[in-house]
Design a binder for these strands. Structure first.
Length: 508
RNA sequence: GGCCUCGUGGCGGAGUGGUUACGCAGAGGACUGCAAAUCCUUGCACCCGAGUUCGAUUCUCGGCGAGGCCUCCA
């Protein structure tokens, strides 16, 4: 393997790119805010999943597969979920047939399973840990950090107070609150439309625990039966799996404030630490066809709809196409998800697959230049440009070469347009394939089953006979029929004999 | 009102104080019965203004424009 690249990452905390230095190179730790599973995940949810999956792969490459811990939570504590659990399983809970956690689990099971299926189709690896909020509300048997214990500690240390049936974080108790979002709470007041709750010491104070009415779901706690505030779960679960301070914390940039800001406040004040995570990374937002995605705009798409239903651009889109389309834009830039973009990603994958098959290439090792580009704050657009370069290596004619050498179709023999040896070309393609694999992109699809394959070959033979008889109408009909079934025929000539050769491929 | 991003050719997307990637699409050509694929050639840009400079797309300031956050949100 080539030399390990030096990682540089943009840190929201400092608003600059910095060389990455893990606390412990033997255990690099990353936490990413996962989805709230009250409904199917939309394509916007896919972005951080894909972006941080690439980072996970890169970290594993640099520090070793067993030396990276990646935790991504599943938020299954949420009033919308609670309401559904109560609505759908209220009687069972009342009758004692079902505990509240079990009811919530039932509600979230379907969406969580769907989420896993969706992101698997997008080529995302499973994180090392995928904790659920419901399992970290109350003190645990295994002694891992839980939310209630964390809140108790905040009260003890004078960072939280009880008021109006809530436990609130006292923002004033933290001298440097607001570092991440660069917000000054006093200046924030001017245009804020936050209703100032009378029981809060300061308007910026946020809920750690709130009491539930008898009909509302809740957990027993020292402050009565209630449920946790939104931010505390990530403080608990990151500490549980990654420790009080860790290396990288990621999520969408909409989470910078208040979610991440408040996570930092809770964690640092509870643990008495100067930092929660050394690096904070945030992916940009996604628009669909130039507009903010929303149900009312009619441009709202779930991952599943894009994968399986012909709702966007009149066709389904394979996971690798969605993934490549996502990686064509740098993770911090806004991305406009459009049909045109998906078509471009599709065309690139098709071309690469064709080249890989022509060269009979297998993935070798990712190229050093590619890795260096990725290591530079995940410059996936540059990395993809490098893949293009590797794929095209030796395929283009030297423009100074004699005209007759430039003629002809590359696909049907060496020596027409390629001026590198076939071996050189193959090694370029092999490296390119390894790079694609590194990005989690599968380019060469599985072959069709033998019987199907033989069927297609037989039809092609029939068609070749028709062509020999100059029966173009019948031959073209066969080609159209196959096209409708997703089989694309390509006629060419054998460079030696001049005889017609028909190749075919399955449409993506 | 406060805070944060960002403005490069038809689109995506790099990069540089002076010779401007790459991909897609387009145009022309080769090949071809026609497609598809492949190959060759090729047009097209650096939001506006001022400043710094021998010289700015690249640096500084101002303006204009787009987006995000401040309320649940990737």
């Amino acid at each position: 393997m080539a030399e390990k690249p030096v990682l540089t990452l943009y840190n929201t905390l400092t608003r600059s790119k910095e060389p990455f230095a893990p606390i412990d190179p033997d255990n690099v730790r990353m936490y990413v805010c996962g989805p709230t599973v009250y409904d199917f995940a939309h394509i916007g949810n896919a972005r951080p999943v894909i972006v941080f999956d690439v980072l996970f792969r890169l970290l594993r490459h640099v520090y070793g597969e067993d030396h990276v811990t990646y935790a991504r939570n599943i938020t299954d504590v949420d009033d919308k979920i609670n309401a559904r659990a109560l609505r759908d399983f209220g009687k069972e809970i009342e009758g004692g047939a079902l505990s509240l956690n079990e009811a919530i689990r039932r509600v979230t099971e379907k969406t969580a399973n769907q989420f896993h299926a969706d992101i698997a189709a997008l080529g995302a690896m499973q994180p090392t840990h995928e904790p659920r909020a419901t399992e970290f509300v109350q003190p645990r048997g295994d002694g891992k950090v839980d939310m209630i214990t964390l809140i108790e500690r905040l009260i003890e240390r004078g960072h939280a107070y009880q008021a109006g049936g809530e436990v609130l974080f006292d923002t004033q108790s933290m001298a440097d609150y607001g570092q991440l979002s660069k917000r000054n709470l006093d200046e924030q007041q001017a245009g804020a439309r936050v209703a100032v709750d009378a029981h809060k010491k300061n308007p910026g104070d946020f809920v750690l625990w709130k009491l539930s009415s008898p009909e509302e779901p809740g957990w027993e706690s020292p402050w009565g039966r209630g449920r946790p505030g939104w931010h505390i779960e990530c403080s608990a679960m990151s500490a549980a799996y990654l420790g009080e301070t860790f290396d990288i914390h990621g999520g969408g940039l909409d989470l910078i404030f208040p979610h991440h800001e408040n996570e930092i406040a809770q964690s640092r004040c509870a643990h008495g630490t100067p930092v929660m995570s050394n690096v904070w990374m945030h992916n940009g937002f996604l628009q669909v066809e130039g507009r903010k995605m929303s149900k009312s705009e009619g441009n709202f798409f779930t991952i599943s709809e894009l994968l399986h239903e012909e709702k966007f651009g009149g066709r389904t889109w394979p996971g690798e196409v969605l993934r490549l389309a996502m990686l064509m834009t740098h993770y911090r830039e806004p991305i406009d998800f459009s049909v045109k973009r998906l078509e471009e990603a599709l065309a690139a994958l098709n071309r690469w697959e064709r080249i890989a098959r022509e060269e009979s290439a297998e993935p070798t090792e990712p190229d050093a230049k590619f890795l260096a580009l990725l290591a530079d704050d995940l410059s996936t657009p540059d990395a993809i440009a490098r893949i293009h370069e590797l794929m095209n290596f030796g395929r283009w004619a030297d423009s100074s070469a004699p005209k007759e050498h430039q003629k002809g179709s590359f696909g049907f023999g060496d020596g027409f347009s390629g001026f590198e040896s076939a071996n050189d070309r193959r090694s370029g393609v092999g490296a390119a394939l390894a790079c694609l694999e590194f990005l989690g992109l599968k380019v060469v699809r599985d072959e069709l089953a033998d019987d199907l394959k033989q069927g297609v070959e037989a039809i092609i033979q029939m068609r070749l006979e028709l062509l020999k008889a100059k029966n173009f109408a019948e031959a073209d009909k066969i080609r159209d029929d196959l096209a409708e079934k997703g089989i694309q025929l390509k006629d060419g000539k054998d460079p030696g004999t001049g005889e017609r050769v028909t190749t075919w491929e399955v449409r993506r």
